[in-house]
Design a protein around this nucleic acid. Structure first.
Length: 472
RNA sequence: GCUCCGUUGGUGUAGUACGGCCAAUCAUUUCGGCCUUUCGAGCCGAUGACCUGGGUUCAAAUCCCGGACGGAGCACCA
């Protein structure tokens, strides 16, 4: 099987589907898969030189190692040879009709005057194409299919055309005569031994077009499956490589791994394992109709993968960039203990307990504040009553929680050890305070901010620490 | 306009080739309960679907015909 990306940019999350599915099938059925960069349009789908490696990197992150990697732009001579052979078999002719004129004739089922050309004329004109003797638009090589085919999409399609813009890859910058996808991928699939093709619904007619070429060569066409588009819920940013690129250029996004971007790189930085994405993609199946990928499915997978290792910390959200919803600082009075000792991980008592010193005041999230006179249970610390301007420690036992008289909330001390932290989320940045022990976490570690969600520690800077929010 | 294709709970999926074992699977979501000095975690449970109208048949999610809705192609893009 093969994944044939167009390297015109890093991947958004939808691109993960192909490697996820064929990589999984390969493992399941002891198969083989390659990545082939279909980079045969230096102009309108101009390849991005960085994208080749980034894509391979993304595939590795998703959990797969391709058995082979090809670049179509390295294989031009092969395509030329097959074009010559096809011409000799009577399967192609050069055509200099203006695009619109040909289209009109084709749509009414009429052959253009070039269709009867003999193979020798075509061959010499094709060599001239290869040598770059025509300008863009002057001459194409068409596959001779059936000009009266009932489906107009299949009638005498273009196999090669001239492109004046040089290819960005140095190895391919001299070529001017480029194959179209249907020709190039059709030839390659057979030559590298692809037996099963999965591709998008937009390429439904490709198989039918390519079959004409396969018939000329007397090759057997692979099994082919067309799947629908994936829509991802939960993202405002329009999901297309060019749209994301534009947002980055305009400064709306910080880069390809901005947590607000629906890119593979962003998911990675947020601490979502490739496996979680892969499993969700495989779960979508391969149906022809469009599907919605619920992010909750990816998050649910990731939660399971990550929960066991993610130690718990408290993080009090102070608010977004607009400064609303400030955290509330309240003194603690009464016969209060000097520290809170919640478990590092409730299912792993052996990891011990954190120590959170309480000098005289704590921060709470504004939304957690009860009505005056009501009680709260500060998790890992104890019961308090909200007295309007302070929290009075009470002698209640845990029954106040059982009886529903007090909510259990997280908190951090308002003292020196508290760690100012920025949590970068798909909805934007949230600033806040993490408990002192958070300063001891390592970059790349996954943690769970209790009652907030899972996050990946990005780093601890001078003034603030940064974490990337994964999911609840 | 011409040509393809699809339609199972909120979401995804199994089942549809060979009709009965499907008053429909699994996961997620939502809701409820349980546990834990009491996690937006975990455990348990509940709600919730065969696009529509005809036909064939003892029997239809499954077969046939029509309709609706949705998607795709008809590029010198991939």
């Amino acid at each position: 099987m093969r994944s044939a990306p167009n390297p015109n940019g890093p991947w958004h999350i939808g691109h993960a589907r192909m490697p996820a599915v064929i990589g999984t099938y390969k493992e399941l059925y002891d198969g083989w898969f390659c990545v082939r960069f279909d980079d045969t349009d230096p102009e309108t789908k101009r390849p991005d030189l960085d994208a080749y490696d980034r894509i391979l990197d993304d595939i590795e992150y998703l959990g797969f190692e391709p058995d082979a990697v090809y670049r179509a732009s390295d294989r031009m001579e092969t395509y030329y040879d097959h074009a010559r052979e096809l011409t000799e078999k009577g399967g192609a002719y050069t055509c200099s009709c203006p695009q619109g004129e040909f289209s009109d004739m084709k749509n009414s089922g009429e052959a253009c005057p070039h269709r009867d050309k003999d193979a020798r004329t075509t061959l010499s004109e094709f060599e001239a194409m290869v040598d770059g003797e025509y300008e863009s638009g002057e001459m194409v090589l068409r596959v001779r299919t059936d000009i009266e085919h009932k489906n107009p999409a299949l009638r005498d399609w273009v196999a090669f055309r001239m492109i004046d813009t040089p290819h960005p890859r140095e190895a391919a910058e001299e070529y001017r005569c480029w194959p179209m996808l249907d020709f190039q991928s059709g030839i390659d699939d057979h030559l590298v031994g692809v037996t099963h093709i999965i591709r998008g619904i937009d390429l439904q007619d490709s198989a039918k077009r390519q079959r004409f070429v396969y018939d000329y060569f007397d090759w057997e066409y692979p099994e082919v499956l067309h799947w629908g588009h994936v829509r991802i819920d939960a993202f405002d940013v329009k999901m297309s490589t060019s749209a994301i690129k534009r947002f980055i250029d305009e400064g709306e996004l910080d880069g390809w791994d901005d947590p607000r971007a629906p890119t593979v790189a962003a998911f990675r930085r947020r601490g979502i394992r490739g496996e979680a994405i892969t499993d969700a993609m495989v779960g979508l199946g391969t149906s022809t109709s469009d599907v919605d990928l619920a992010m909750s499915a990816v998050y649910a997978n990731n939660r399971e993968l990550v929960d066991d290792d993610a130690n718990r910390y408290f993080f009090v959200r102070a608010g977004g960039e607009d400064g609303d919803d400030e955290a509330v600082e309240l003194p603690v009075s009464g016969d209060a203990p000097g520290e809170g000792t919640p478990p590092v991980h409730p299912e792993h008592e052996d990891r011990g307990r954190r120590s959170i010193p309480v000098d005289d005041a704590v921060y709470l999230e504004a939304a957690d504040l009860p009505a005056e006179g009501e009680k709260l249970w500060l998790k890992g610390y104890g019961p308090v009553e909200y007295a309007g301007d302070e929290l009075r420690f009470t002698d209640d036992d845990i029954d106040v929680v059982r009886d529903g008289d007090a909510d259990v909330v997280h908190w951090v001390p308002a003292g020196d050890g508290t760690v100012p932290t920025r949590l970068r989320t798909p909805e934007g940045d949230v600033s806040g305070y993490a408990e002192p022990a958070f300063a001891g976490t390592d970059a790349d570690e996954m943690v769970q901010f209790v009652r907030v969600g899972f996050a990946r520690v990005d780093g601890h800077g001078d003034g603030e620490s940064v974490a990337y929010f994964a999911h609840e």
